[in-house]
Amino acid sequence: MEYHLTTPLSPEKIRQLHCGDIVYLTGEVFTARDKAHYLMLQKRRQDIPFSPSEMALYHCGPLVKKTKAGWQVVSAGPTTSNRMEEVMGRLIRKYNIPFIIGKGGMGRRTREALRNHVGVYAAYPGGVGALAADAVQTVRDVFWLRELGVLEAVWVLTVKEFGPLIIVFDAHGRSLLHNNAEHQ
């Protein structure tokens, strides 16, 4: 099935998604790589300057350019999600993140956290950076730029019809990964 969804994503919308479904997402996503995950775990929920539960989390360190008009996203494909497996489950529980986008698959702990908290993990094809950047309409905000640097900072992006996002873990505990091969 193909879905065209807009953030924020309600549990009802998330539950209707199944492994292998394809989503085109409109609305807000925030990027996070290794460092941002750890920082978000350290911080108190009320100290986070954006609302993770109303957006999608995108495992991505975008290639950006500063222009007179502000930041511009040049290329923005996904990074390997599995590097975040260690902390993903805790982050999902802490912030109620309903939609995670990345590449390469994740592990059992993430799959179970998504089932318990009604979330999905979706894959965007790795390396498809130019097309992903074309789906970004505006850079709404950037957080922790000085602390983490451009690559690891959290970029809040407004996207339009961002996809194809392939559902790899659905909220029913199922996985699309080949032979159920999950990272440990």
Binding site: P62, V74, S75, G77, G127, V128, G129, A130, L131, D134
Partner: peptide, 14 residues
């Protein structure tokens, strides 16, 4: 194709 036509890196991990 898009990367080539727009002269942008095809992947953000350059």
């Amino acid at each position: 194709q898009v990367a080539r036509h727009t002269g942008r890196p095809m992947c953000q991990d350059t």
